[in-house]
Design a protein around this nucleic acid. Sequence first.
DNA 1: AGCATGACTGCTT
DNA 2: TAAGCAGCCATGC
Length: 104
Amino acid sequence: MPKITDEQVELVRALIRSVPPGRVTTYGDVADAAGLTNPRQVGWILRTDGADLPWQRVVPASGRPSVANAGRQLELLRAEGVPIVDGRVRLRSCRADLDALMDE
DNA sequence: AGCATGACTGCTT
DNA sequence: TAAGCAGCCATGC
């Protein structure tokens, strides 16, 4: 049995699904909101059970996706209206507030 | 039990 | 601003 419970997985999934188009969030923010100690676990969840999620709205704090689908991800984000400069997401401008999303 | 890997982050150069 | 390095935790062999 994994240390990450289904509860946490569902919470992460819900948070990511709560992120509206044109807005993105970071692994660290999701991890903190879901109660995970390490942002890498968010990545692990997305890799295992994130196939049906808007995973493109979750980017590293650096703003530069290191995932294999980075090119496609940036393209999708740009299509959603996310400000991208030189292949880098402007987290300063489009970072979503997960606490506010949960309230909605 | 130990070692290597990974969709990360933050500090230091 | 960019690149390097260490810390972090769950998973797989």
